[in-house]
Amino acid sequence: MNYGPLLFLGILFTLAGSWFGLVLMPNRQLGDLQPHVNTNTAAIYPQPIPGEAAQGREVYRSLGCNYCHTQQVRPDGFGSDIQRGWGKRRSVARDYIYQKPVMLGSSRTGPDLTNIGERQPSYDWHFTHLYNPQTTSKGSIMPSYAYLFDVRKIGYGGASTNALKLSGDFSPGPGFEVVPKPEAVQLVEYLRSLKSSVELPEAPLPKAE
């Protein structure tokens, strides 16, 4: 192998193979998937998430939540995702068509969040959990996101309506209250928007027994 040009061509052609196979072909097959329109109800799925949730998605990305939480439900019979209640059906490519970037995640240090909006719709739960995960999930190794909240003195008008309901060790002390900053509200709106159990032709829901 002393012939430079041959080496050069070999190097280029080998990578061209997977560039074609693993970049261009997936793009051809999945690159212009359209949302599904249900012919009975005229419901369209998926839909872009509304503004505040979209801002929350940026908070999610910026804090690196995707390094501990996946957003993909594996098919029934492969892993225990469905038995754990992380989704009613497996995730498919169409679920992700409006996401930039797609944050499938590669680690489940924490649970999957594909359907967290359905599994946990309560605002109170999300806010207290983000403020200090130990409030709702004793023994969790998720960090506290207290910097997404303001601790302030309760004003003359009494406690704010959006103040967190904290008790015991977690409460900020008498005369003080904890209220979410806009980032916390956005993040919770995003988490509550995560739902993907709409039936698709390629991903039917399991039949009720």
Partner: peptide, 18 residues
Amino acid sequence: LLVLEPARGTVQAAVNWW
């Protein structure tokens, strides 16, 4: 395909792991 002009949906994940 990921940062400047992101591809659609899961194609991003494909390119990402490629």
